[in-house]
Structures are given as C-alpha cells and as structure tokens.
Design a protein around this nucleic acid. Structure first.
Lengths: 230, 230
DNA sequence: GATAAAACCGAACGTACGTTCGTTCGTCTT
DNA sequence: AAGACGAACGAACGTACGTTCGGTTTTATC
C-alpha cells in the first residue's frame, strides 16, 4: 500500500511505510524520485505549461499511463518539486542558523545556504523561481505558506541587522529583503557553474554587496564602539 | 496597404505610411496598440503559454479571426510586446545618460529609468521579465540583441563606477551587474504601487543599496582625496 | 451610387494535450 | 496451485488550442 501519492490529498510526505515492497529496479521511493528528477529537468528546460506528460514519461523511461501510476496529475508533479525544494531550503536554513548568533553572520549563512542549494539543484530551483504562479488552489496555498516562512526567517535576519548596526537607517526593510531575494532568484537566468566563479565566491560577493548595501558607509568616526560590524 | 504587421518578417517598426486610412474607431496603429495592450494584460495575468488567442480576442473586443487580421501569429504578439518594451527601456536610458557625467549619477539614472518604466508599464515589464525564453528563432535573437545592448550600457556604468571609486575592489563586475538586474527584474513579483512606497523612494533605495554595496565602506581615512563619492 | 479595398467574423480543420480504461505480466502470500 | 496485488502499458476519449477559409459588412474614392 502506498501512502501518499495515490491519495487525493496534497500531503507531500513521501516516505513509504514499507521499506522495500518490490525490488524490480529500486524501491518505490527511489522510482518516484527518479521520475521527479526527470520531470524537473523537462520542466526546467521548456517550462511547466509547455512540458507535456508524454515528454516527462519519455524522459523518465516509463509509459504515459505508467506515469499516472505514480502521480495523480501533472500539477501534483509540479507541487512535489516545489514543496520539496522550498522545504529543503527552509529546514536547511533553520538548522544552520542555530549555531550562529550575530545577524551579520546569519545573513552570510542565509546567502550561502540559498546559493549552495541552488548550485546543487539548479533545475529544481529554476522551476521554483519561474513557476511560482503555476499551481492553483490548495497546492498553491501550501507552497505559498512555506515561501512566507522562508521570507519571515530572512526578514528576521534583516531586522536584526538594521536594529544592531543601522538603527537609524531610513531604508525600507521589506524593499531591502525583496531586493536580496531578487538577486538570489535571478541566478537561474545567468549563472553558469562552468564559466562563473566558484559557488563560494558567488555567495560571498552577494552577501557582501547586500551587507554593505544596507549598512552603508559607517556614519562617521565619532560614534560609540558598536557601530562597526565585527 | 499596411506596412509591417501583415508581412512575414519580424521588422517591428510599427508606424504605417499612411497616417489614417480608416477612422472607424481610431487609426490602424491605434487599433494595433489597443489590441497589444489587451494581450499584454492577459499574458501578464495567466502567462504566455496558458493565454489563448480566444482570451486575447475577447479582452481586445475583436473576434478570434479578426485578431489574425492584425497579427500573423501568437508569437508575433509576444515579440512586439517585448521588442517595444526593451526598445523603450534602452532608448530612454541612452537619452537620459547624455546629460550625466559621473558614473555615480549615471547608475542612479539607470535605476530610476528602469523602475520608472516598470511602474508605468507593470504588465509589459512582467511579460518581459517572465517570458524571456518563450520566443524562438529570429524573434528570440532580435529581443536578445536588445537585451544585450541594455546589459552592455549598464555594465559600462558599473565598470566606470569601479574604475573611478573602487579600482582595487575584488568584486566580480558581471556578478555585480546581474545582481542589480535581479533586484530590478524581480520587482514584478512583489511591488504593489498601492501599498509600497512611492516609485521615487523605491528607485532611490535600490540605487543606494547597489552603490553602497559595491563601493563598500571607504577604505580608510588616509587615501587620496578622490576616494569618496561626491 | 458604383467600385475596390480594408475590416471583420462564424465556422471549421488538424493536432496535441491531460487523463482514463481495460488488460497483461510478474511476484509475493497462503 | 490459487488468489491477490503492484507495476506497467497500448489505445482511446474528450477537449482546447492555433490557425485558416470563405464570406459579409464597412469605409474611402471616384
């Protein structure tokens, strides 16, 4: 009995209860993941609306009807791709933030986490950045909720940055946060891991630009000792 | 005889030779522009692939067949929307740059030009930012060429900024330029003119963040007199 | 008011899509 | 050996799409 995908709900927990019911070629979860990976590639290349289930089936090495044995619908495939990516981004970020205190370092952790996941899963994050509005109803609401959590965690870092290092700044914090997301979510349009610099250099530069951008030139060499970042 | 749209080429010059051959409801060009505006709204709302010619025709107040009297194909409609927007962005920027010398001010001009055109034509720029890869062959090449020119003008400003104010910076100038485009092209995802601040405040903040971001804190209060922006 | 061109439209054509149906083939369990 | 179930597939269904065709109405010119 398969637990999640053949049901009608949008519960994205994908682990089967039984570990390996059939070993024809990998477990059930492994076959799901392989098909999802193929679908991610196709959707990233041609876009969700233009990607046909026949294309996905061919790329995954199954028949068109076989595809529907694993997924209820085309939208469910997109939902799973997005939900898993956003979830990985968010939980990865929350874990890494536990070990860091200063908002200056937290911002660097956030940028490194995002670019790191991007470089390791370029197709997935392209689909996440480009197909934000392709889901409908509950599937949309559910991914939207995670994205809002991701925003709020990031916004919290930005708030603490302003409060600690630039409490008198007139910059709008929402605009600042969204400009950071813009720089990050635009990566899929131009970054080429073969030609661009190393992922770490990319993350460092994006974080540095953002930090200098909102903290600006130090007010003047006269204030108290807590005005300069460590 | 109509000059451009009914031909098979992708020449986007839209001015008819005869000023007003028909006055039923506006000139030929006015009718073309009204249909294009309606198409822009539909494509911005539901996406290019999902937008049907029937939907566009209904929004424009013409029949499905009547639509094909003005445009050869669906792709040509998207091409015209993108070509005209990119062209307006680029020529507007080039004009405004003529009166400005310092790269610091030039960058502010660029950001103001882009955000200003965005706020005045939100649907068009959403289509331009989101449907970059929906054109094929010559239509794609032609819009790609303008986008490259737009990049090169902006990159020139960034280069002069670095050369004049931060010649020893280790930041990658391509990454810096693309992060600026990311912040600008992501606007359509979140900026709401009713709730967000004024467009000028938005432009000022984005320009300030970018300038401080790449110029960083002044190296130290010991260098020569040309290290601080005017 | 006749004539020609432009403007416009209802109806259809062919195709590709997402999804479903009925069935077969193995492989477990009993 | 029998039964049950997961995995997989070929073929089809209904629909919506982009585009075209043949014709009618409107407008401009003489």
């Amino acid at each position: 009995m398969k637990t999640s995908n053949t049901e009608q709900t949008f519960d994205p927990n994908s682990a089967s209860e039984a570990a390996a019911t059939s070993e024809g070629r990998g477990t059930y979860d492994e076959r799901v993941n392989r098909i999802l990976a193929a679908a991610t590639g196709v959707i990233a290349r041609v876009g969700y609306e233009k990607a046909s289930m026949r294309q996905v089936a061919r790329a995954a090495g199954v028949s068109l009807a076989g595809l529907y044995h694993y997924f209820d619908s085309k939208e469910k495939i997109l939902f799973l791709i997005q939900f898993r990516s956003f979830n990985a981004l968010l939980t990865g970020l929350r874990e890494k933030l536990h070990h860091v205190e200063d908002p200056f370092d937290q911002l660097r952790v956030m940028v490194r986490n995002h670019t790191g996941y991007f470089v390791a899963n370029m197709a997935s994050l392209k689909v996440c950045s480009h197909e934000l509005d392709s889901l409908t109803d509950e599937a949309y609401e559910e991914t939207f909720a995670i994205r809002r959590h991701y925003y709020e965690v990031t916004r919290g870092i930005v708030d603490r940055l302003f409060d600690k290092y630039a409490p008198d700044s007139t910059l709008d914090r929402h605009v600042a946060t969204m400009s950071l997301f813009g720089a990050l979510n635009w990566l899929y349009r131009w970054y080429d891991p073969k030609r661009g610099g190393s992922p770490t250099a990319l993350a460092n530069q994006l974080a540095t630009q953002f930090l200098h951008g909102i903290l600006g030139p130090p007010p003047a060499p006269d204030a108290a000792g807590e005005s300069a970042p460590p």
